[in-house]
Measured scan of single mutants.
Amino acid sequence: MPVRRGHVAPQNTFLDTIIRKFEGQSRKFIIANARVENCAVIYCNDGFCELCGYSRAEVMQRPCTCDFLHGPRTQRRAAAQIAQALLGAEERKVEIAFYRKDGSCFLCLVDVVPVKNEDGAVIMFILNFEVVMEKDMVGSPAHDTNHRGPPTSWLAPGRAKTFRLKLPALLALTARESSVRSGGAGGAGAPGAVVVDVDLTPAAPSSESLALDEVTAMDNHVAGLGPAEERRALVGPGSPPRSAPGQLPSPRAHSLNPDASGSSCSLARTRSRESCASVRRASSADDIEAMRAGVLPPPPRHASTGAMHPLRSGLLNSTSDSDLVRYRTISKIPQITLNFVDLKGDPFLASPTSDREIIAPKIKERTHNVTEKVTQVLSLGADVLPEYKLQAPRIHRWTILHYSPFKAVWDWLILLLVIYTAVFTPYSAAFLLKETEEGPPATECGYACQPLAVVDLIVDIMFIVDILINFRTTYVNANEEVVSHPGRIAVHYFKGWFLIDMVAAIPFDLLI
């Protein structure tokens, strides 16, 4: 008679799926529990143990900040960024110097990925580790590398530091407007667009060049630039800015003055950032001319202004700041037409079709709590990747769950009947059967004279019903998954307890 339990259901295979997918890609990662103190490590794979030199037993239950890997060259700011990422709910990448158990130093890129439950609360953290440099290539500990984003994938490793954006290309926007319009339909740009040429040739750093990471940081200074100062900065030398009595002219307006920039070969870094931020506020060169004239017309309804409409929906549905990093990277690809469009465009503009998908598509409701890094690593669709929660398995109709209350009560009843059979069957065979043979035949009273025979008949009927119930009862397979398919249940029961239950259900007393 089957006594099969499996009270692990309803099970959740999400954690096993993450481990299996990460292991298949030869990654070095740990999984931490966000619900406990210090976000203790609950799993670390073999790749991480080989990377740091510690065994799994030495890593388990330690804080996922990996303070046991810190050393003299470990930056405090990087460690603080990892700790801050564990307090938030967004994906974050941090470069930090770690030390192995043998004392060797290596520069590592740590990717902190939160995993949320159905309520939107962070319950786990996945920390992925990628070695960037070994100890002989690690720089000085005073050099802070965590304020910069990861290198873009479309640049060669040897040319990542030679990417320079020439400031004269930004200063000569109005001069290039006529050349853009003359391109017409034969050019790649839309009317009114501004073409910015980027020099990728390796050259020595000069005062006129600005690194790509500095251009990325310009967006942080746009908020500090007032509207009046932006307007004066875009007017140009024809209309000098008016300053109040006793007030000095704005240095932001002076930063885009061609006369002032041409007199000296070098520009201050602050002026460069502010000038680029001011130019980015204009949607095209037409807006710059309109600002000089004193009238700013409404933005025209053409394809170039609607190019950012799908980007707005993608940004609203993005799951991490990696989408913004990807957008900034692609927006700086050289030799393309940049349409400086305000994100607050007309909502009635139709979304044009684009061959290049900048932001990841909208994630469906079932995966809105899973970050983009987890979705990318697992390579699963929205119909396959579940949320991290207890999910009731989908069972067929008329199927009994093996952990249901009805099955528990039924098993206790069958257990009592088995005990009765084990006690009274030998007793009936030894004593009652002998008395029946010696006594007179009682054929007239039937079952009324033999109450134990009636009980034995009921017990046999219950055993037959138990066999039928076992054909529709779920079970737990070797992978700790609840199986509810009727065919698989029948095959599993035939290979197991079916023969024993059938022999126990045969009414031998009635056959004798």
Rank of each mutant, 00 (worst) to 15 (best):
V41D: 01
T329W: 04
S272T: 09
M124C: 05
V295Y: 15
A34S: 13
R269A: 13
R271W: 15
L311R: 14
R62D: 01
S178M: 06
T329N: 14
A175Q: 15
S379A: 05
G314F: 08
R356I: 15
E58A: 03
S255M: 05
R62P: 01
I30G: 01
Q81E: 13
T371G: 07
T65A: 08
A121S: 13
D213G: 06
Q11N: 15
A169T: 12
P237A: 14
C105L: 10
D287C: 06
A228Q: 03
T375L: 14
S320Q: 11
M137R: 13
S266D: 09
F163N: 14
H368W: 07
A293N: 15
S243N: 09
P334C: 01
H221V: 10
G6F: 12
T270G: 14
D259I: 06
L170Y: 08
T337L: 12
S209Y: 15
R4Y: 12
D119S: 08
G187Y: 06
P299E: 07
E118K: 04
V377K: 03
V194I: 05
R4K: 15
G294K: 12
V377Y: 03
P298Y: 01
R328N: 12
S354N: 15
R328M: 05
S272L: 07
C49D: 01
R164V: 07
L69N: 01
V3P: 07
S275V: 07
V110S: 01
T145W: 09
E37V: 07
F14A: 11
A40F: 05
S320I: 14
R56T: 01
V370F: 15
D111C: 05
E274C: 04
S304G: 08
F29G: 01
G24T: 15
V215C: 06
D213A: 13
E58T: 01
A121G: 13
E91I: 11
R4I: 14
A350W: 06
H368C: 13
R148D: 07
Y327Q: 12
V94K: 01
F129H: 04
Q61P: 01
P298K: 09
T201E: 09
I42L: 07
D102A: 01
S304R: 07
D321R: 14
G88I: 14
N339T: 03
L87K: 12
V196P: 01
V112H: 01
A260G: 12
A188V: 07
S239C: 08
A9D: 15
F22K: 05
D119F: 09
T375G: 08
A204R: 15
P157T: 13
S179I: 12
P150G: 15
A160K: 06
K28Q: 07
N12G: 15
S278F: 08
I126C: 09
C108T: 11
G139A: 15
T375H: 05
A160Y: 11
R62F: 04
Q376C: 06
H368L: 14
I359Y: 11
L324H: 14
L267K: 08
L267P: 07
L210R: 05
A9H: 15
E58N: 01
E365H: 08
D46C: 01
A80Q: 10
V8H: 13
L51V: 01
R312D: 14
Y99H: 15
R20P: 01
E214A: 05
K362E: 10
L210A: 06
V374E: 01
S318P: 07
V94L: 01
S313T: 14
V195S: 05
D321N: 09
G24S: 13
W154G: 05
L87W: 13
A156S: 12
T65M: 06
E50H: 06
A160T: 05
F48C: 01
A121L: 06
F68L: 01
K166P: 05
P258W: 05
T337F: 09
G71W: 01
G294N: 15
S272E: 14
N45R: 01
A307E: 13
N369Q: 11
M60H: 01
S206V: 09
S351Y: 04
C108H: 01
D119Q: 15
R148C: 15
R242W: 15
S351D: 06
N38V: 01
E357G: 05
V94N: 01
S207F: 06
